[in-house]
């Protein structure tokens, strides 16, 4: 892992197609559609964040409202220091590729990520490099997740475009790839295009 990459959390559940990770700080979550990376031994895995949630650590104990008499949200947490221990933020990511030597492969890796592996945000250069190819779009639009696939695809593309020298060119190229994939479903294509329009 490169030094400058920000550590976002730790994997608490892993499978071939994706993983869930817990953030170290409450509410510190990566953006929807952002590219994150983790490792499976020597192999670096790339994944797209598709869902994030903050909840109680015990499934049976649901958080309750406590701030009626507190002057601010910050004061609420200051006066209830146990909250940071009883609540957690977690996010789920869909594996979209891995690094094989110097090349990035945009398909599922042979093995899932390791449990307790650290999850890092992808540095700009790697996002840029990842955006050279659009084979991952097929995985995104075909995924059945809590988040609508179209929203996820659009967010991912917007974020990848942001770091490019010519964001519009990338979006057009990605749009063309989508048009190819969704050739028979113009309505869906239109919905995604509306969301990525620069």
């Amino acid at each position: 892992m490169t030094k400058q990459s920000v550590r976002l959390g730790e994997i608490i559940e892993a499978s071939t197609t994706g993983f869930s990770a817990q953030s170290y700080e409450l509410n510190e979550l990566p953006a929807l559609g952002s590219l994150v990376m983790t490792s499976e031994g020597e192999r670096k895995l790339y994944a797209v964040v598709y869902h994030a949630a903050t909840e109680g650590i015990e499934p049976g104990r649901r958080p309750i409202a406590r701030g009626r008499d507190e002057p601010s949200e910050q004061a609420l947490f200051d006066n209830n220091p146990q909250l940071a221990r009883l609540l957690r933020s977690r996010f789920s990511a869909l594996v979209v590729g891995y690094r094989d030597g110097s090349a990035i492969r945009q398909h599922l890796p042979p093995k899932p990520a390791h449990i307790h592996a650290f999850v890092h945000a992808c540095p700009q250069e790697e996002v840029k490099e990842f955006g050279q190819s659009f084979n991952f779009l097929n995985t995104l639009i075909g995924a059945e997740l809590e988040t609508p696939a179209d929203e996820l695809t659009a967010s991912t593309l917007r974020l990848i475009a942001e770091v490019q020298d010519d964001p519009r060119a990338l979006l057009v190229a990605a749009g063309k790839e989508l048009a190819m994939l969704l050739g028979r479903d113009y309505t869906r294509l239109k919905a995604i295009l509306e969301r990525i329009k620069p």
Binding site: L171, V172, G175, A179, L193
Partner: peptide, 13 residues
């Protein structure tokens, strides 16, 4: 007026 969609769709859809 949507030049982006037109650009994407021309040659694909």
């Amino acid at each position: 007026s949507d030049t982006f969609s037109a650009e994407v769709l021309s040659g694909t859809g």
